[in-house]
């Protein structure tokens, strides 16, 4: 019991320190974006996902890991097996132990998970002024609003209102619960140079990386929706037939 109280106390302090105001139930309205993958027949925009991966790779991955995604999963973005192999080979990961019992560095292979920017949470906190950049694998499912929230957050950095004092190492964001966030507004126009000549505006970068994170959180979204359409059509036909059978069977029951 005592340990639990300690835990809850620690949690309360932790929340207090991040300056969170969401205990008060403040509702922040998130602007809705257009996503090609929303709706019953929605599919991912492969080109956008590839650009989003580039944004992740060149900007986000400095601090944020994606531990649940493997390089081999990138084939779903439209990369072929050799391209995926080349992407994986850009990273070195710890392998081994070899026969001498030593851990050795080796190039990553497609079966490896995305390489984490920090070896552990403590290292991540030490490098980020005490804040822990969360893993992004499930971010689009782990926050209310999903990809809309990610987009809003990435484009929501602005000058704080006069009455808000922003402590050192914190930044003001219109859409972050509590508004004070440890992450700087890192995504700016032309933060990334796209290879397909898409203008790399802040809005475009945020849109692409949000779509990429939506894919990462729910990689089977397309299969799910396509199967769903078939299943529901089947059930409609079957249930319709069952209704006809029911009427026939019951036709003489009311005499």
């Amino acid at each position: 019991m005592r340990s639990l109280k300690k835990v809850i106390l620690a949690a309360a302090i932790g929340l207090g320190l991040t300056g969170s105001a969401f205990a008060a139930g403040e509702q922040i309205e998130l602007p809705k974006q257009e996503w090609s993958h929303s709706g019953i027949f929605g599919t991912f925009d492969r080109a956008s996902l590839q650009r989003g991966f580039q944004v992740y790779k060149e900007v986000c991955s400095t601090c944020h890991g994606m531990s649940l995604v493997s390089y081999r999963n990138l084939t779903a973005l439209g990369f072929n097996a050799d391209e995926v192999k080349a992407i994986a080979a850009q990273y070195t990961v710890m392998g081994g132990p070899n026969d001498a019992g030593e851990m050795v560095e080796r190039p990553a292979i497609p079966a490896d998970h995305f390489k984490a920017p920090f070896p552990n949470e403590q290292a991540a906190r030490a490098a980020n002024g005490g804040a822990y950049p969360p893993d992004l694998s499930l971010m689009a499912k782990a926050r209310p609003g999903g990809e809309d929230y990610i987009y809003a957050l990435l484009t929501g950095f602005e000058e704080p209102p006069a009455d808000v004092k922003v402590p050192d190492g914190m930044y003001y964001n219109k859409y972050f619960p509590g508004h004070l966030i440890g992450m700087p507004g890192i995504l700016q126009d032309d933060s990334v140079t796209y290879t397909d000549n898409t203008p790399a505006t802040q809005a475009q970068l945020a849109h692409d990386v949000s779509a990429f994170l939506a894919w990462a959180a729910e990689p089977h979204l397309e299969a799910r929706k396509q199967t769903g359409v078939k299943v529901i059509l089947f059930l409609l036909v079957f249930t319709g037939m069952m209704y006809a059978v029911k009427r026939k069977v019951w036709a003489d029951a009311h005499h």
Binding site: A10, P134, A142, P144, G146, P177, R224, G228, L235
Partner: peptide
Amino acid sequence: AGFVFFAPNFMGHPDNYIPANPLVTPAH
């Protein structure tokens, strides 16, 4: 089937896609 295929997380909670952390209680 409508829930399973088109709104699978509608009745769930986003916080359950964050790994358990004994040091941080969700706000709500």
